[in-house]
Amino acid sequence: MSENTPPAGDASSTGAASAAGSASPPEVGIPRDLAFSERGFLFDPTTGLTYTLNRTGAFLFQRLRHGTAAAEATAALAAEFDVELPRAADDVRDFVQQLRDFGLA
């Protein structure tokens, strides 16, 4: 884990290769004690590590931390950033995987 590295989440940064109807995005459990600002700054009080999330990452994180299901977050992402659902689903899946890799979900 590197300090202040941005988990991706930029919808335009991931490929659009996956087809519609691919596996559902996973459900996400995010620790309650993570401190997060709407501007995308994230602090993990257990490790002392900080992260910067880009606009789409912050958009997703804000929803996922409040218990929004991944499928619902995917739809919101697609609508907000005007991308196709399959591509949004890929991005959400990638984002959640990065959160898990960093121990944030």
Binding site: D44, T46, T47, G48, T50
Partner: peptide, 8 residues
Amino acid sequence: AGVTMRDP
């Protein structure tokens, strides 16, 4: 520079 954290 540093930050307080709490790893049990």
